[in-house]
Amino acid sequence: MLTLLGVAAVVVGFAVRLNPLLVVVIAAFVTGLAAGLSPVEVLEAFGRAFNENRFVSAAYLVLPVIGVVERAGLQERARTLIARFRGVSVGPFLIGYLAFRQITSALGLTSIAGHAQSIRPMVAPMAEGAVEARTGPLDDDARQQTRAMASATDNIGLFFGEDIFIAIGSILLMVGFLATSGITVDPIHLSVWAIPTAIVAFVIHAARLILFDRRLRRRAGP
């Protein structure tokens, strides 16, 4: 039971907004010590796992090119481009992005978009531009909500698209886990049964985007 103290440390640490890197280190020590490891053993286990997970941080390699195109005015261009299409409102625009992200993820192309390479330089400025074209300049609050919604849309499209692709990590994990339990499942069945949830996710989030669009417009007044 004591090992659960580490989980408690994470929850409390995040709730009081301590620096998360410190919270993680503290939680690792609390958990390891409670499980009977020595401090050095905890540090070794943590160091080894950190080293094995370096691939997680390698994705920042896209930042230099994004920075260069921002320097040359991409965000500003994205903003004015969308404003030229007067008919495109923020709701339908993000719904289109959601569909694009779900479909490409379902085809296994999960890394062709993302927060660093598409949301920050293009999708968020376009979403802001779409709002501005209709209601005039955004206040800070509406701007931040629009950006957060653009990022949320990327995550939702990715999560509820990728599981339809048969060679994605989660499907392989499920096949492997079931195999060790003596159950043989064809990966294609797992991916087919991800489709109903994908459709429901699209419907729910698309409805929210339309409501979000209306709320922003109402805020801006007549």
Binding site: T3, L4, G6, V7, V10, N19, P20, L21, V24, V25, A27, A28, T31, G32, A34, A35, L37, V42, A45, F46, G47, R48, A49, F50, E52, N53, R54, V56, S57, Y60
Partner: peptide, 22 residues
Amino acid sequence: GWAALLPQMLAALGAVFALAGV
């Protein structure tokens, strides 16, 4: 900033959790 390293740190914490049987 520091948030960049958080995903990797959390992955490592997951490994410690697994070791302790959380």
